[in-house]
Design a protein around this nucleic acid. Structure first.
Length: 256
DNA sequence: ATGGCAGGCTATGCCTGA
């Protein structure tokens, strides 16, 4: 079973590239972030024609989530966290074939002095409570998406440049750690303890060519799933294509 | 060298992203 997380930075722009890629990789589950489409504009038939079911929670211009699943539909779909009223569409959780899949687009935070940074920390605190509940209810849990947090300096091309910046700051890293400590593992680190593969590269300054990137797109899994996680890769070829997203898709393969 | 790139909008520059 292959599961994918990809921040597409506009599904409208990236749809042809996504469909081509899907036909090659044939994942069972695809979690998208930053679709930037209201639900009425979601390209449902493009996915159903390929034998997929698709679920979306979008808004105009910003954010927006989708979950696309092969063959079988999803149930128990959740797009809001209890006690965290939010117009920003950043969550889409669903159950597929016994897997609880939780797709997230964690706020960026802008800069440490910004109100948006406080919103990021509040969102993460609410998400911790949400995950506590989800892990109590479900056994096979996969949390994936754009976390907008590089877990450690090993996930940063140049920690000196990024020192004291949003995406690496201590409060957000410890907020992520608290969520992981509920009973999840960062699968990339499990599989590649000293690896330094990135998932995002700035569009500017030849960052991709220089491999100046960050690992901010993560796949976390509950402990019962650890032994079945077989492979993990970040598809950099897509980032090198014409008109790419600034994020590469991450793929995890589980034994059925 | 402190910039630069991309996407969306009711826009023709500004906001946001990371």
């Amino acid at each position: 079973m292959k599961i994918v997380s990809w921040n597409v930075n506009s599904l409208k722009v990236r749809l042809p590239a996504l469909l081509t890629w899907m036909k090659t990789v044939k994942p069972e589950i695809i979690a998208l972030q930053e679709t930037k489409l209201v639900d009425a504009e979601f390209p449902m038939s493009a996915f159903t024609e390929l034998g997929y079911h698709a679920y979306c929670s979008g808004q105009k211009t910003y954010n927006g989530m989708a979950l696309i699943t092969r063959d079988n539909p999803c149930s128990e779909i959740v797009v809001d966290m209890p006690q965290f009223a939010d117009i920003q569409r950043r969550l889409l959780a669903a159950t597929w074939n016994g897997y609880r899949v939780i797709n997230v687009y964690v706020p960026n935070g802008s800069e440490l002095t910004s109100e948006k940074y406080q919103y990021k920390l509040a969102w993460l605190a609410a998400f911790e409570k949400f995950m506590q509940d989800q892990l109590a209810k479900y056994e096979k849990v996969i949390v994936l998406g754009d976390f907008n947090i590089a877990p450690t300096d090993l996930d940063v091309h140049d920690p000196k440049i990024w020192q004291n910046c949003v995406l690496v700051s201590e409060p957000e890293r410890s907020a992520l750690q608290k969520i992981v400590n509920l009973g999840l593992k960062d699968l990339y680190r499990e599989i590649k303890p000293t690896g330094q593969d990135f998932t995002w590269w700035d569009y500017r300054a030849g960052a991709f060519r220089r491999n100046n990137g960050l690992r901010i797109d993560l796949v976390l899994a509950s402990l019962p799933l650890l032994s079945s996680a077989q492979d993990y890769w970040i598809d950099k070829t897509v980032r090198a294509d014409e008109r790419p997203s600034d994020h590469a898709p991450v793929v995890v393969e589980f034994l059925e």
